[in-house]
Nucleic acid binder design. Sequence first.
DNA 1: CTGAAAGCGCTAACAG
DNA 2: CTGTTAGCGCTTTCAG
Lengths: 334, 334
Amino acid sequence: MATIKDVARHANVSIATVSRVINEPDKVKEPTRKRVEAVMQELSFSRNALAASLVTRRTGCIGLIIPQLSGAFFAPLISAVEHTVRAGGSHLVVSCGNCTQAEVLAALSFLKQRSCDAIIVTPGALEHETLVNLLETHPNILIIHRLVPGYEHRCVVVDNYQGAFMAVSHLIEQGHRRIAAVTGPHNNPESMDRLRGMRDAMTKAGLPLPDNYVFEGIFGPESGLAGAEAFLALSKPPTAVFCFNDQTALGVLDYCKRRQIAVPADMAVMGFDDVEFADLVSPRLTTVHQPIDTIGRTAGTLALRLAKREAMTDDSHVIQPRLALRESVAVISD
Amino acid sequence: MATIKDVARHANVSIATVSRVINEPDKVKEPTRKRVEAVMQELSFSRNALAASLVTRRTGCIGLIIPQLSGAFFAPLISAVEHTVRAGGSHLVVSCGNCTQAEVLAALSFLKQRSCDAIIVTPGALEHETLVNLLETHPNILIIHRLVPGYEHRCVVVDNYQGAFMAVSHLIEQGHRRIAAVTGPHNNPESMDRLRGMRDAMTKAGLPLPDNYVFEGIFGPESGLAGAEAFLALSKPPTAVFCFNDQTALGVLDYCKRRQIAVPADMAVMGFDDVEFADLVSPRLTTVHQPIDTIGRTAGTLALRLAKREAMTDDSHVIQPRLALRESVAVISD
DNA sequence: CTGAAAGCGCTAACAG
DNA sequence: CTGTTAGCGCTTTCAG
């Protein structure tokens, strides 16, 4: 591998000049520049970015810590982040945090050592305190999917409360009065926000939400299966079930299919997320659309700004979801 | 940010000793080590990996260039690569090549400058010559999805020919005699391999494959739509269509649904890839299963070996697909 | 077992 | 416009 030293020698200039033709070409007189460029070509010189970063203290890398790389929800998110980040001239280094606190911290430490200009964290299992601590000690960290009080300008979240409120209100408008929910884990803040949104929508309509209408799941199809089974065993089963994510809804749909329960006629199913397959299953899933792309773009833009050490505005970045009306919910028939 | 210099000063040792407790702790006497470790903790020292890499010439990073980050096919692939790579103690830097040759080369140059220990390339639109050149000049590059003669040991591919052969043979076994195909772009080597496999399976069974039974697509649902339309307009339409990827098959399925053509009764549909949604659509898609996970793991393992500059064995890495038999193909009824 | 010193390849003042 | 020089933070001989 040729270095700027080699280039300098071959072109009969100092290494400073070579450095200049790389970084600020117009500060070098045309003939000199041409000569240097020719030599670089000839030696197929490739600048060692590591060495440069060591002195500039900027790597042009933005880190992203995320629980999964694949998956209907995260993959498009990563993609959106990558695109904006790259449009801004930086590159994305992803690290799969796999949810556990230890892994996230390990990933973080790696990205820190690698001097990423900014780091985007999807907290997964991170405790609130850890998060606060992180935000406090690392001015270039950014959080997706959790609103940390006092650091709103470095958080990008979707309005889970509002999304759930809208979803349940829609169900009510369709005539449903007995509405159940398959939630996420009780320690999941997003799930809790959705539950609050649901509760308020029910209360506003003067409807009850009995405890046995709330089934705690883990955001997977198996939760939907179990939840549906539990609800249908009730003496007064619900006519609609609101699943706190689409994977769960998929489980409910699956259960209904097996048991020959017609969706939406006998059971309405509402999801949350609007992942790719929501429009692919049958009946097509009515769900709360999370604008994944907007989230990703917002996060990317913010990261770019943090990387440049630009001042952050104090606004919070709360993104509004909207309803994706499809086939799994209809006006109640009885 | 504290440096080893700071640590050295505070612990009353030389920077060499600090470096040792980081890299070869057992070469440092217990008390000294303890003291240094305490100071590191206290100053919340984080080693600057950039500086280290500058001298060791190893970064612990493995690069991956890929056309898309999301997508039913690539996301799981990335995930598999990331897991193996990380299990091997390295980290993955992804770069989205977006298919064009220029972009792939740009991504490559970035990863090179960043001194990745090894780079995995999914060639997308790269021309064969460029590929050969790359493999020749970069001993630590690895190719997925293209078998470059002379560099087999640094390529990992699935046997597209065999997959297509199996798929079409299965269709024939089910009694189909008029089988059409919606292929990928004609300059796509994988698509060409699949077409050869199909041709040979047809020939072997003594069946013709007329030109108007071969519709060139671009691996998207719209190709399936267009292909299906074209085939159905024929005076003798096929009874089965082999789609060269699942996205395309999705388009065909969609077309049939709209036109009330029963699948598989009136039209059998065979896909290729077996992405996540293949098992989710209805009818569930019969398709050629690509062992994405195996591909990813193989590539990851190979990359790790390249990174360690270990000698490569001379075997090629050709992975065998298998059929995923589901609902969209059945014994022909007439 | 520990320290001194010489770089890794590059950038960034500062002179000229 | 160009060259000299002093590091960036770390590893790695080579002595002691």
